[in-house]
Amino acid sequence: MRKTYTIAYAAWTLFAVAAGVESWRLGFGGFARPGPGFVPFLAAAALGVLGVVALLQTWLAGADKGDGKGFRVGDILKIFIAVLSLFGGVLLWDVIGFIPATFLLLLFLFRCVEPLGWRRVVIASALTLAFTHILFVVLLGVRLPQGRVWTYFLN
């Protein structure tokens, strides 16, 4: 865990440096007349200082070495596939429309992430889709993408 925390704190410190540079570029102004980058710069500076302190603590005292849950390759792969499918499913909204894209996404989630039988998968996906459609589209009047494919064919 010590290595993981070292990487994490170093990443936060680098992020703070980048945010600080960008804030300074925005304009720090003065104490009597603060600019748009004034508060972000101070927040980035505080984040940077805390990051360095945490980094030093981890190096010198071995702090946090048993803290946190850590990452396993198998888990990361599972998470990666799930996130990729979510991005893909939502990107498909624009192309084939909300209903088919969400149905495909639900099929994937029910079948692959938590393996269930195909019959159950189809029924659960259809019911979930119907419920969300009724709630968001019918009752709340949310306008969801129809899909460029169908618009193209219908016109």
Partner: peptide, 17 residues
Amino acid sequence: PYLMPMIIIFCILGSYS
């Protein structure tokens, strides 16, 4: 396993709407 995809779709639609 039945709840998880439902929560995901709720999150997506809630955020989109």
